[in-house]
Nucleic acid binder design. Structure first.
Length: 446
RNA sequence: UCCACAGUAGCUCAACGGCAGAGCAACCGGCUGUUAACCGGUGGGUUCCAGGUUCGAAUCCUGGCUGUGGAGCCA
């Protein structure tokens, strides 16, 4: 009796009769000869139906198959270098029998080109396409690699709430919802809760969606994104940078190791990933501003010159991030940003309170900021004063202030945007392809 | 929120003041090695919406809607 197999394992079954259950990815009809590409989620295999070798009814059924029809095929696995569309390539199945579950109706996503809006409207179907399949498989490995690395180093995953009573950072970017007649907000970060958890468990992280109601319409923004946020007691900014570079180098290495096939499907330049090794460069904000001024001075294009204008004290825009990152072949840390442009809980630099112990990591190739973090203020009086300065509702932060009353310690943490990191690793043109169902300014369907 | 561009067949686009078209998809037929197969045939339109200019508007004008790219802001 033939065995049901996963296409990904097909190499183990050459010469054997097997059963594959899945969907028609593509089909070519040559008259007495048909090529049917069948995918099962793990891969794609070309099934060959030759009329004289088959029961007439089976051949007839095969000739009526449409794109995405569901079916169960039985046949003999063969090696054939002409099976270029198979994933893994080079294997095909000589069709013997066929059970059609459904002949699918006219499928919207044809093998021809489509526009972004159309594909996003059909995202629930687009996921079946080879390129999207490859990207989301890499996403799963990336997420797994990041959490594995932290787990292996004693970081405890402690989940933080998504429904929260107050802002994590600033009030302007919150999704407000009705909570039995009171206001609640979707979490924009798990960070404040991480600080409480860190005091209980030492080294913690949270990995969950974060929500930003920002009216941003760029290739790097999502309203809902997956946020990995480690936080550790007694960790310094310098130790955190080492952690980040090792974490990312490991994750990129895992992707390279497991996904040669997928990276080839998305045509990623592997040399760009192979160079991602610790250590990454570290430059101060002061240095970064000087570098940007120098880059701007050397630029002939007046438009670019204007975009690159910068004064000490301003935050970087994406043209700045891109220009800085272009100077390096791997991500680059920028540390000690002005306190005024960073969150209220960031620790001032000793003797230089106008800058803080913060660090952002900028990805190469113009992919921008993929992590942001800092040492947190641990002095009770200072954090108290900061909460007053920014004028947020003090009662909502009573529990947070408690953390500084009962055994406060120096600590640090950062947040990593999974989709931005994946967009960079995969070399994608837009973050919307890095998440199964992107939530964007103009899109919440499907 | 600002700037730029776009919206025509299921999809990708052409026609740019004078009969609304092509390729793909669908359907019918042909073909034994296809790789976005190929060849022949058939069907398919509220030209985003509302107003205006004109003998005549997909085309020009005004307003709106939707989307795309970029900026700001951020991971």
């Amino acid at each position: 009796m033939a065995q049901v197999i996963s296409i990904s394992q097909i190499a183990d079954y050459v010469g054997q009769e097997v059963i594959v259950r899945g969907w028609v990815y593509d089909r070519t009809d040559k008259g007495k000869l048909q090529f049917i590409q069948v995918r099962d989620g793990s891969g794609i295999v070309q099934c060959v139906a030759y009329k004289p070798d088959l029961d007439e009814a089976v051949f007839e059924q095969a000739s009526k198959l449409t794109q995405e029809s569901s079916l169960i095929v039985t046949g003999i696995v063969k090696v054939n270098e002409k099976a270029k569309k198979s994933v893994p390539a080079g294997f095909e199945i000589g069709l013997q029998n066929l059970e059609v579950i459904q002949v699918a109706g006219e499928y919207p996503i044809t093998p021809k080109e489509h526009g972004t809006e159309f594909l996003m409207d059909n995202r629930h179907l687009w996921l079946r396409s080879l390129r999207q399949w490859a990207i989301l498989r890499i996403r799963a490995t990336l997420a797994r690699a990041l959490t594995d690395w932290l787990d292996d180093r004693g970081y405890l995953r402690v989940d933080t709430p998504i429904l929260t009573p107050a802002a994590g950072e600033e009030t302007t970017t919150l999704f407000e919802i009705d909570y039995f007649g009171e206001s609640a907000y979707l979490a924009q970060t798990g960070q404040l809760y991480n600080e409480a958890n860190m005091m209980a468990f030492g080294k913690v992280y949270t990995f969950s969606p974060s929500f930003r109601a920002e009216k941003s319409k760029t290739r790097r923004h999502l309203m809902e994104f997956w946020h990995l946020e480690p936080e550790a007691a007694f960790m310094s900014l310098e130790e955190m940078m080492e952690l980040e570079e090792q974490l990312l180098a490991y994750a990129v290495g895992r992707v390279l190791e497991k996904h040669q096939y997928e990276l080839a499907i998305i045509e990623r330049d592997l040399s760009k990933l192979e160079s991602i090794k610790a250590p990454f460069a570290r430059i101060s904000y002061d240095d970064a501003v000087e570098r940007l001024k120098a880059i701007a001075a050397q630029t002939d294009d007046p438009e670019q010159k204007k975009l690159l204008e910068i004064e000490w004290g301003s935050d970087f825009g994406s043209p700045h991030e891109t220009a800085l990152a272009e100077q390096f072949d791997r991500p680059v840390f920028v540390y000690h940003y002005p306190s005024a442009i960073k969150a209220f809980y960031m620790q001032p630099v000793a003797g230089r309170p106008e800058v803080c112990r913060s660090v952002d990591l900028l990805a190469p190739e113009g992919y921008g900021e993929i992590t942001g973090g800092s040492e947190r203020i641990h002095d009770p009086a200072l954090i108290d004063a900061r909460i007053d300065t920014i004028g947020i509702a003090r009662e909502a932060y009573a529990w947070y202030l408690d953390l500084r009353k009962y055994g406060t310690v120096p600590h640090a943490g950062f947040g990593l945007g999974l989709e931005r990191t994946l967009t960079w690793i995969c070399g994608l043109p837009h973050v919307r392809e890095a998440i199964p169902y992107a939530r964007m300014l103009n899109r919440k369907y499907p």
